[in-house]
Design a protein around this nucleic acid. Structure first.
Lengths: 194, 194
DNA sequence: TCATATTTTCAGGAATATCTGAAAGTATCG
DNA sequence: CGATACTTTCAGATATTCCTGAAAATATGA
């Protein structure tokens, strides 16, 4: 692997971290390399840059495509395929969130719902089901919120982030207004404002 | 493993999912079991319930303690240690977020900052550094926000979640008020309200 | 303190995951 | 069509992670 030091540190770190996420070292490295590159790379360039086998690159790219984190490109008068990582870093966050949701959250919700259909036959099971109900409720709330926020444009999202804990203050204000107006609380999310 | 069906499905699923998170199957199963249990369990009970070795339980518990996801308990006139998962499900979310941050985000931020100190020696490196700068900025923004939100009490948090995309509307209202008042924008997070 | 109960550690075996080279599969050009 | 350039697949080799039993360490009660 012969890369500029800046690129190398980043690539190696992402390789390590890849393991913590649902991908292996190679996949992390390939993504990191494409993310930093100022032009699309072909498979042989990746092979050489990372010092891994051609077939490993092929499999890694395949996985990254499944995650929608790389796109295929074609350069004129070159029959090889080139790969690049999407530019918009906000979009990347959205994509990763969507994919993780699909792979981790949705199957879990399904399992939880299935269990909630069962009839408990002991106090032990009754308690277990109650805990599962709590967890189900929490996850639904979190993912529902994430779905909503995900639809925000970059600017609104950034504003929300900049707000930080200030949200709390904003909520107080909202409560005051809502109460004064005799508005119904807990209606469809935020629908009673503006 | 002989468990009530409700508990068994949940435990097995968490075992699988454990792999996707940074823990192994056993750790996921132990946590799931404790989460559902209506009383603290000792190591032998866990051993038997999950059909794994005593030493494996010991290691699993150790890891869960490092995650601050289980607490040791002592029952009167029993010298064995008992374990239980914290009750408050909101607190669990906060704990997991904190730990993941410590393990994954902070080291990454350090690495990114180190790279940003380097002086690029080619246009390729210059571009790479610019991408890294973008990523650094984004992560700082996201984690800063997460820090703030994490400090909210359960009720405020729940309200924020219920708001969903309504945040967008709320932000519009805030903008209108702020602009009308000739207020400074982008001050310390949300500080110019209420 | 000793005897016993309980927990932790850890070397090595078992199970998984990852990576590679060779072969098969596809697309493109003449 | 071939012939060639390129890509994907996959069986087996390699590397990594996980789990266990035995032994060491620690705690408790007499």
């Amino acid at each position: 692997m012969t890369l500029p030091p800046i690129v190398q540190s980043f690539v190696l770190h992402f390789g390590e971290m890849g393991g913590r996420w649902g991908v292996n070292r190679t996949v992390g490295q390939i993504y990191a390399l494409l993310f930093l590159s100022d032009r699309p790379l072909n498979a042989d360039e990746i092979t050489e840059a990372l010092g891994i086998s051609r077939s490993n690159v092929s499999m890694g790219i395949k996985e990254l495509e499944a995650w929608r984190l790389v796109r295929k490109r074609h350069l004129p008068s070159d029959r090889r395929e080139y790969f690049q990582a999407p530019d918009d870093i906000w979009q990347i966050v959205r994509t990763v969130a969507e994919e993780r949701r699909k792979r981790e959250i949705d199957p879990t919700l399904t399992m939880l719902r299935d269990i909630l259909m069962e009839t408990p036959t002991s106090s032990e099971e009754r308690h277990a089901q109650e805990r599962i109900r709590q967890m189900h409720e929490l996850i639904e709330l979190l993912t529902g919120w994430a779905d909503d926020v995900q639809k925000l444009d970059n600017e609104s999202l950034m504003q929300l982030l900049a707000l930080g804990a200030g949200v709390s203050k904003l909520l107080e204000v909202k409560n005051r207004i809502t109460v004064l107006a005799g508005g119904k609380r807990r209606g469809p999310a935020g629908g009673d404002l503006a």
